[in-house]
Design a protein around this nucleic acid. Structure first.
Lengths: 261, 261
DNA sequence: GGCTTTCGGTTTGTTATTTGAACCGATGGT
DNA sequence: ACCATCGGTTCAAATAACAAACCGAAAGCC
């Protein structure tokens, strides 16, 4: 792996749950030599990608990312365009809605919206990466990726996160084929045992699946009626976001969604 | 300069005016060997910081920056917190308001807001970097930086952008001292000949000046009454943003602003 | 059609940067 | 007083970056 990737990877260790990281910590996390890590961080800091805060000299993300994100949003309005739809989806379903993007072969949550409808809701503050095999978003994305991508993902070790997590590649392939046939994915406690979720894939201008839109609810609230209502809202919101992104639904998905709605 | 800095610098060549750049172009811009540039871009692309678009294989900023910016905003609400104030400032003054941040010793515009009050207004879409010596924002920031920083900036060649641009370091030092005495800066056509602007410095939690807030108007509209009105609005908005950032106005500035308001 | 330029991308031997272990002094807990 | 750990530094050894030349494809241009 090149030096640049190592430096960029350091940025990934910053999360909502861990916004400040010291030199030694980040070196351990990234499994890098402290000297190397120091040099990388210094260079990132010189360019405003991280900054040192207070007397403890811990690092946090710097202001440079703001400018770049503003620029990216100006060119490809991803987050800003999807936010209102996401909020409406949460409102409408009374559950937690979230949007993830496939970035560098990893599925990362980009934004989420809560509903005030219930006192209990699914929180997902500090999730850094969504496992493909154990979340509805992951399955939805996986179902619409090239076969090669699926092979890579399913070849890796698949963590048994709950008692119901599917971890057998062959069983997963069956699930995924099913998802492709339905046009949406569902996960019943595969990630956290009392959380059920449904997700639809999102598509970019070239018809490639570039992310997923999901609604996560407490399993105890997920009856058949609720499931139907959420599916309906999801398909609608998924169409909307894909359109806002200037994306095109593959014809077969469009048909599936029309029928399922 | 290290490899990481070179890679990160490539990201700076993307602007609103030039959102897509080809390999050869960016190599020329950055004055790098094409092979080097290719390797850097490939690594940036692997990490989602840039992506290749369409058949021309040009590069643009990637989705990774979105996630990082969302994280940064969650920790240090800079842009999101300032936006409403910025918009109110534009509305209130009837002119163009903009906010810049000092990033890696360069002053970069981060956000701006227009007013609908006049058919003619100052547009600033594709400004990449604000020259310290020729803009009110630059002067405002410069006035509240350590002496060492000023020396570095004033030692560089200073471009004569209009007929009224100050370029003599001694004259600029006098202007800057004046700005420090007033607590705000003004530029009359120093950047573009028919644009007048006023700016106030913004401060972070440690009392360091980390950016500037400015209002830019057509010179023909900048009478004494207008100038007084804009100054008043700027001082108020500047106080507000600094507070929102969890920043502290240095005591002397606070006093100056109270008197000037 | 054929000539030339420029594009994105690759290959190569040489060169310069990155790396890792050991080492600082400072700090804080026991 | 001690020990562990912090952020940061040093320097020889290993590795990755570099420049130049090259490739096939596409786009002007005659």
């Amino acid at each position: 792996m090149g030096t640049v990737s190592k430096a960029l990877e350091l940025l990934d260790y910053f999360t909502k749950a861990r916004p400040l990281i010291g030199l030694s910590d980040i070196a351990r996390l990234a499994d890098l030599n402290k000297a190397t890590c120091f040099r990388l961080l210094t260079e990132l800091a010189e360019n405003g990608f991280v900054e040192q805060v207070g007397t403890s000299r811990e690092y946090r993300l710097g202001p440079s990312v703001l400018r770049l994100a503003a620029l990216r949003e100006a060119q490809v309005p991803t987050r800003d365009a999807a936010m209102p739809v996401l909020q409406a989806l949460a409102q409408q379903t009374g559950e937690t809605a979230h949007l993830s993007l496939l970035i560098a072969d990893i599925l990362r949550p980009l934004a989420h919206a809560y509903s005030a409808a219930h006192a209990t809701k699914v929180m997902l503050e500090d999730t850094e990466t969504l496992p493909f095999h154990a979340t509805s978003s992951g399955l939805a994305v996986l179902a619409f990726q090239p076969e090669a991508f699926r092979n890579v993902v399913l070849a890796k070790p698949l963590a048994q996160l709950t008692s119901t997590t599917l971890t057998s590649p062959t069983a997963l392939r069956a699930r995924i084929a099913e998802v492709r046939g339905l046009g949406y994915a569902e996960s019943r406690g595969g990630y956290e045992s009392d959380v059920h979720s449904m997700a639809v894939p999102l598509f970019d201008a070239l018809g490639r699946c570039s992310g997923a839109l999901a609604v996560a609810a407490l399993g105890t609230r997920m009856g058949e009626a609720q499931r139907r209502m959420i599916r309906h809202a999801l398909l609608q919101a998924g169409t909307e976001i894909t359109t806002l992104w200037g994306g095109t639904l593959p014809a077969d998905i469009a048909t599936l969604w029309r029928l399922a709605a």
